[in-house]
Design a protein around this nucleic acid. Structure first.
Lengths: 143, 143
DNA sequence: AAATATATTTAGCAAGGCTAATTACAAGGC
DNA sequence: GCCTTGTAATTAGCCTTGCTAAATATATTT
């Protein structure tokens, strides 16, 4: 297992790491009673304030029809609501309900605790590296 | 956006990053004409030799019916084939065809090149951080 | 006023996850 | 040797979440 010599090798490892990480927490997602797409969108709504559907779709890297249906589900479950934007009546303002904010915290708790339990095996220095890497990868993925 | 104060917050961001990263490369999978589940299973078959369906399902952390359908698709596309195990005729031996091995390499290459193109926007220092973080996360995830 | 552009939804399709139940074969107990 | 129990895979049927194409409503531009 040598050093990483090329960006391609790093990309491959990063990809593989992501697959394994998501498999690891899949069971926790299922137990949380809310699917990953809904949870992830809800997270954006809770922390990112009211957003339009298009912005939310872009933030989640899915197409608007996909996001429209995710918001349908969140609304049906009472976790978010659509308001019409008075200054542009085509657009929406999607916002979380109090229950949505609560559910987000509860839903994430299992998975995050589970993942965090794994991360706790690492040193403070390693955790700082991960923090920096997460920021860097997110930057690299921005359009 | 302040610092990350808790391991739970870091775990959540890491999770979110992984979701977004896999969404980003999904488009490449689609262009390659093979979905992520099929590509990942094919990878196990190509490198892990003939395997039973249950073993394959376990390796991929999905249930047998899910894997059965993935193998159906791989077989229909001529990428893998089922053989019956003569010493236990309930079980299968699933193996890759030559086309399957070729497809795997091409699909993986495409994906990796795409991701690498994004990573190339980053500085050498950021890439080193990611490299260190990938190692750390993989260490944390080891059983 | 009409044409064009934008935001969202609707309709319909595919992939990939699950559980419950079925089928085929294997292994042990009487 | 049969009969029960166990195991491997499949089938049936459901759900979520991704997509594109087309429809609807509102803004904007000409």
């Amino acid at each position: 297992m040598g050093k990483l010599h090329t960006i391609e090798e790093l990309a491959d490892r990063l990809h593989s790491m992501s697959i394994h990480l998501l498999r690891l927490v899949r069971a926790q997602d299922a137990a949380a009673g809310i699917g990953p797409a809904r949870l992830s969108a809800l997270s954006v709504i809770v922390f990112g304030g009211p957003v339009s559907l298009n912005d939310l779709a872009r933030a989640e890297q899915v197409r608007p029809p996909t996001m429209s249906r995710i918001v349908d589900a969140l609304e049906a479950e009472g976790l978010a609501r659509r308001r019409t934007n008075q200054s542009d009546r085509r657009a929406l303002l999607i916002e979380a309900t109090p229950q949505g904010a609560t559910m987000l915290k509860q839903g994430r708790k299992r998975r995050v605790k589970f993942l965090a339990a794994h991360l706790r095996r690492l040193s403070g220095a390693e955790l700082k590296q991960i923090e920096a890497a997460v920021r860097a990868v997110q930057k690299a993925m921005m359009k």
